[in-house]
Write a protein that binds this DNA or RNA. Structure first.
Lengths: 159, 159
DNA sequence: GTCGCTGCAAAGTCTTTGCAGAGAG
DNA sequence: CTCTCTGCAAAGACTTTGCAGCGAC
C-alpha cells in the first residue's frame, strides 16, 4: 500500500506571493487594501488549523489588540476571500463553518464528529482514480473535495 | 478498470426493518412512538436527497397537511435520529446542515458547474482506498462525501 | 392516569446588513 | 476629494428551549 501523507504543512506559496495576488485582485475590482484585510490573510496563512470566523477574530484580537477588528469585517473578508478562491470553507455539524487557505497542496479531510478535529491527508491513489473516473465519463474535472466523517483515535479511546 | 456504477437507488434496508429498529430503540429508552416521528423517518426514507430540516419540514407539510408538524419537532427528531446513528448529517459549503438516512449506500457526486446537473456514482476502488486509509490512521469511518466539480459532457459539447 | 411529546412562541446563536465616520487611492 | 471599508448595533436566519395541553402506553 502506498504511503498516505498526513503532514505537509510546508507552504507551497510564499506569503509575499499570496499577498501580491491578493493586492492585484483587489486592485482589479476597485477594492481597497486595508490593514484589516492584510491581518486576516496573514493570520490565516500562519495558522495550520481550520478556523471558525470567531476563532480567527479572537486570534486577531489577541495578536493586534490595538486594531479592534470587528467580527463583521472578519465575515466580510472571509466571504471575499472565498469568492476569490483564496480560502475554502468546510462546515460540519454543530461546530459551524471553518476556513482555511486554499494555497496549500490539495488535500482531503478526516473529520471527527465527536471533537471536531480535522486531519488532512493526501492520497495519490484516490487522486488517480478520480482522474480515471472523470475521463471515462467525459467529465472535465476542475476541482474536487472529499470529507470522511467518523471518530478519531483519541475519541475512540476515551469511550 | 473496474466498473463505475452511476445508478444505485435500491434501498439496502427495507422500511419495515428500519421502522422496527426505530421502535425498539424508542422502547429501550422509554421514548414514545408518535405519528410525527414515524412521518419524519418515512419521509427521510423516501427521499433520495440530503434534506435540510426546513426542506424536510416543507415536504412533510405538503404531504400531510392535516398533521401540522412543527419545525421544532423536526429538529428534535433529527437530533434523536442522529444520536442514534439512524441518520447522519453533513454540511456542504454554504448550504447548511443536511440530513440523510445512514442506511443507504454511500455515494459521491459529480457536479457540473455550468448546468448544475448532479450525477451520483459509486466507485468501489475509492471506497476500498478510504477504508484502507481510515484503518491505517485508526479512524472509525462513519460516513464520507466526495464532490467532483467540473463540466459535464453535454456542456462541453455545447461550446 | 402518568409522563413523555407536541406546537407555539420566545430566547439563543451565528451571520449579515445599514449607517455614519474613517481612511485608501 | 471620492468612494470603499470599518466598527457598531440592529436585523435576519437558523436552531433550541420553556411551557401548557395532548396523547402513547
Amino acid at each position: 500500500m502506498p504511503d498516505i501523507t498526513t503532514d505537509f504543512h510546508d507552504k507551497t506559496v510564499k506569503y509575499e506571493e499570496l499577498l501580491n495576488d491578493f493586492k492585484q485582485l483587489l486592485k482589479k475590482n476597485n477594492f481597497k487594501f486595508t490593514i484589516q484585510r492584510e491581518v486576516i490573510l496573514e493570520t490565516l496563512y500562519n495558522s495550520d488549523e481550520h478556523l471558525t470566523p470567531e476563532a480567527l477574530h479572537n486570534l486577531i484580537q489577541s495578536k493586534y489588540p490595538d486594531l479592534k477588528t470587528g467580527i463583521a469585517t472578519v465575515y466580510r473578508t472571509l466571504s471575499l476571500l472565498e469568492e476569490s478562491n483564496i480560502v475554502t470553507s468546510l462546515s460540519f455539524g454543530a461546530q459551524g463553518k471553518k476556513y482555511e487557505l486554499g494555497a496549500k497542496e490539495h488535500h482531503d479531510h478526516l473529520i471527527c464528529t465527536e471533537c471536531g478535529q480535522i486531519t488532512e491527508f493526501v492520497d495519490s491513489e484516490i487522486e488517480k482514480r478520480q482522474h480515471a473516473i472523470t475521463e471515462k465519463l467525459n467529465f472535465k474535472m476542475l476541482d474536487h473535495s472529499m470529507q470522511i466523517y467518523g471518530i478519531c483515535k483519541e475519541c475512540q479511546e476515551k469511550k
